[in-house]
Design a binder for these strands. Structure first.
Lengths: 232, 232
DNA sequence: GTGGGCTGTCACAAAATTGTCACGAAAGAT
DNA sequence: ATCTTTCGTGACAATTTTGTGACAGCCCAC
C-alpha cells in the first residue's frame, strides 16, 4: 500500500545524526528532507511544506528555540508541529522548549522506536480530522468513520483501493477524471503503475457494487471515468 | 451545565512545591487537596476521593513508585489515574514509573502549562465517558462495576488488556480504529509497543469470546479493527 | 523460589489485495 | 464494411496484510 507519506523536515547541524534519523523515519514510511541550519530550514519549509519538524536545540546562528518561537508566531507556519531534540544535560531547557511552542520534546540519545512513536503521536494529535459525514447516493452509502460501504444497509465488501476509489468518486461526483488524475488522487502522486490498472480497479468496484449501483460509475470514452447519478 | 470541578491530590513532601502546583491547578479550575506522605495520601484518597493523583517520585517512607504500584493493585483504587513527578536526572526511572502503573510522568522542572495540559490529557483518556452501566450486545455483557465480562451469564475469563480493549470497543461500536488509535486509547499514549501487538491482543480477545461472539470484532483490511453488530 | 498469569515480539502460515497481461468486445474513423 | 482505438474481463503471480502459535521476561501470590 502506498500510504500518503508525511514529510518530515530534520533540522540538525550534524549530518550523521540527520542521516540516522532520516533512515529510521524512511523505514517507517515517512519522507525526509533535511536542513543543517535555520536558514536552510526556512527555505525547505517554504519549498517542500513538511508536515512536521524535528528541530535540534543546538544550532549555529539562530538557536532552535528561537526558531521554533518564530515559526509559531508566523501565521503561515504556526500550525506546523515541532518536536525538539536536545542532548542529555540540556534538560533544564525543556520548559523553554515547550513554551516556545514545541509540541513534544525528545532527549538524545533516543531509540528510533521512541522517535517514531512520538512523531506518530504528535501527528495524530495535531492532524485535525475533519467531520466525516457518511455520503449517500441512491441507497449507496459510504461511511468514512466506520470505513464501510453499504447498499441499502447491506454491507459491500471491497478492498482498500476500491474503497479509496469509491470515496474519491463520491466526493467528486458528476465530473470526469482521466486515469492519470485518478492515479494521482487515489493512488498518490509518486507511484508508478500502468494507467490500465485503473480500468481493472474500476471493473472490480463495479462488480462489487453490483447491478444496483454499477451504473453510477460511467466510462467517458477517450478520457476516463465519472461518477454520476444521471444516466449517461 | 455545572462543571464538576475535578479534584486532584498532590502528594509531595515539599510544601512549597505543593503550593505552587495547587495554585496553578486552581487557576485552571481544579480543586486541590494535598498530602506530604503516603500515609496522608492514603487517608485523603479514602476521604476525598480525588479524580487524579500527582505523585512525587521521592517520598519519605514508602517511595512513590511503590505507592503507585500498591494503588493500582487495590481494586478500589486501580482506576485512579496517577501522574508521576520526577526530578531532573531521575529520568531513567521513567520506565519503572510507567510500569508501576502511572498514567503519565512529568519531569521537574515543568511549566504550569505543561502540567495542566498533561493532566487534562490523562483525565480525558481515563475518564470513562459512559455511565457505569453494563453494556450488553447480543448476549455479551461487560459490567464495568464488577469488572466482568459474561456471555449469556457465563463468565468469560480475559486479561486486563483484553478487558480494556473490549471495553473500548463496546463503548465505541461500529467505528473503525487503526492500530495506532487503539494503542493510544487502550494502552495509553505514552508507551511504545509494536502495532502488531494489537493484532495479538485482538486474537486473544476473539479466542476468549469464542465462536458465539468473535464475529463482533471485525478486521478492516488496510486500516485496523471495528466492533460491530452488523455483518461485515 | 516457584508456579502461574500476562505481555510484547517473533517467525511463519494463511488470506486478501494488487498490478499486469492477453484477448475479446465495443465504438469510432475512414 | 473494415480497420483502429479504447475499454471490459478473467486469470495470475507477486506482494501485503493478518492470523496464529510459541516464547521469554516480568511481576506477584503462595
Amino acid at each position: 500500500m502506498t500510504k500518503a507519506g508525511k514529510t518530515v523536515l530534520i533540522v540538525d547541524d550534524e549530518a550523521p545524526i540527520r542521516e540516522m534519523i532520516a533512515v529510521a523515519l524512511e523505514m517507517a514510511g515517512y519522507e525526509c528532507i533535511e536542513a543543517a541550519s535555520t536558514q536552510e530550514a526556512h527555505a525547505q519549509i517554504i519549498d517542500k511544506k513538511p508536515d512536521l519538524i524535528l528541530l535540534d536545540w543546538m544550532l549555529p546562528g539562530t538557536s532552535g528555540v528561537e526558531f521554533a518561537r518564530r515559526l509559531k508566531r508566523e501565521d503561515r507556519t504556526s500550525e506546523l508541529p515541532i518536536i525538539m531534540l536536545t542532548a542529555k544535560g540540556e534538560e533544564d531547557n525543556k520548559v523553554q522548549g515547550l513554551e516556545a511552542g514545541a509540541d513534544d520534546y525528545i532527549t538524545k540519545p533516543f531509540s528510533p522506536r521512541e522517535l517514531v512513536a512520538r512523531l506518530k503521536a504528535v501527528l495524530r494529535r495535531t492532524t485535525p480530522q475533519g467531520v466525516e459525514e457518511p455520503i449517500e447516493v441512491q441507497g449507496l452509502t459510504l461511511d468514512p468513520v466506520c470505513h464501510r460501504v453499504t447498499s441499502h444497509d447491506k454491507p459491500i465488501d471491497i478492498g482498500p483501493t476500491e474503497y479509496r476509489l469509491l470515496q474519491f468518486f463520491m466526493t467528486h461526483q458528476e465530473r470526469a477524471y482521466s486515469r492519470a488524475q485518478l492515479l494521482d488522487q487515489v493512488w498518490g502522486g509518486n507511484v508508478y503503475v500502468e494507467e490500465r490498472t485503473v480500468d481493472v480497479h474500476i471493473r472490480r468496484l463495479r462488480k462489487a457494487l453490483g447491478e444496483a449501483h454499477e451504473h453510477l460509475i460511467q466510462t467517458v470514452r477517450g478520457t476516463g471515468y465519472r461518477f454520476s447519478t444521471k444516466a449517461s
